[in-house]
Computed example of a mutant assay.
Amino acid sequence: MKLPWLYVGICFSSFWVSPRLVWRPGYAAEQLEEVMKKLAPELFISQPDLLHQLVTIMNPNTLMAHGVPIYRTNQCAGEFVITFPRAYHSGFNQGFNFAEAVNFCTVDWLPLGRQCVEHYRALNRYCVFSHDEMICKWPLKAEELDVVLASSVQKDLVVMIEEEKALREAVRKMGVVESEKINLELLADDERQCAKCKTTCFTSAVYCPCSPGALVCLHHVDALCSCPSSSISWGIATKPWMICTPMMNAVKLRAESYDNWRLSY
């Protein structure tokens, strides 16, 4: 994710991802998406994640006419432009140029990352990596974490745990009682993606003998098959970080050391 990309552009060539000319602020992302769907609904029918495919652009004047805020900047040689989360951007090259772009994330990105997973789930879009897996790996090296990072990881773990508990309870109420421990981490990402929303499963998944190789996340149990719930099985990750384990306690203690320090001043 953090490998830099080099873009080569000719004069007047347009772009939809490289930061150079026109930006829509992140806080107006939903507003822009609504306007785009309103003006070109037919494009979203077959491709709900159209705006993530970098193939469609709308005239900025049209967007502004519908109340979408637009900011324009002119990036010259040697200048840096930072694009914040959910900020759509596009523009055109004013001459032949080479431009470099790279992704980076600060500690406060973690809750935004979880929101992104929910957004991708609604669009049935593949995730680049499993957010839950990333969060669950950090407690293994709790003592090596920066205390600020540990605090953010601990907070995100709590959110993940509460959501997982609620989803598992909902699955049980649906009548899915057969369960077994599995290690989804050993599967390739394309083998553990929800058949419905394409989310990469890590903490749990649901599957049925009638559909070998197919599985869904706990959000989409009803989309798996038409078999009765009693014949469906659900798997629990063999490394259940979602419950209070020594690893969870370790990252909590590391995080509390930061909170205690902060409150002392």
Score class of each variant (00 low, 15 high):
250 A>H: 05
19 P>H: 11
262 R>G: 08
122 A>S: 06
29 A>G: 02
116 C>N: 15
179 S>F: 13
81 V>H: 07
212 P>S: 01
165 K>D: 10
120 Y>N: 13
1 M>I: 09
246 P>L: 00
234 W>V: 08
52 H>E: 13
189 D>W: 00
119 H>V: 00
236 I>M: 06
181 K>N: 13
192 R>L: 04
171 V>L: 08
161 I>N: 03
211 S>T: 15
265 Y>I: 10
263 L>H: 15
4 P>A: 08
187 L>W: 14
130 S>W: 06
86 R>V: 01
78 G>Y: 09
19 P>A: 13
78 G>A: 09
217 C>V: 14
113 G>F: 00
43 L>T: 05
135 I>Q: 02
163 E>Y: 00
148 V>E: 09
257 S>R: 09
9 G>S: 15
243 I>V: 15
111 P>T: 03
218 L>P: 04
158 V>K: 15
169 E>T: 10
203 T>D: 11
26 G>M: 02
27 Y>I: 02
213 G>W: 03
50 L>M: 11
234 W>C: 08
35 V>E: 07
250 A>N: 07
185 E>G: 08
135 I>S: 01
186 L>A: 14
32 L>K: 10
79 E>T: 12
53 Q>G: 02
72 R>L: 01
12 F>Y: 15
67 G>V: 03
114 R>I: 07
153 V>I: 15
5 W>A: 11
179 S>P: 09
75 Q>E: 07
200 T>G: 02
214 A>L: 09
46 S>W: 02
108 D>P: 06
40 A>Y: 07
174 M>A: 07
166 A>N: 07
199 T>W: 00
61 N>S: 08
78 G>S: 12
162 E>C: 11
102 V>K: 08
210 C>T: 13
198 K>N: 10
178 E>H: 15
172 R>S: 02
62 T>W: 05
236 I>N: 04
117 V>F: 06
212 P>Q: 01
60 P>A: 07
146 D>P: 06
167 L>A: 15
113 G>W: 00
263 L>W: 15
106 T>Q: 09
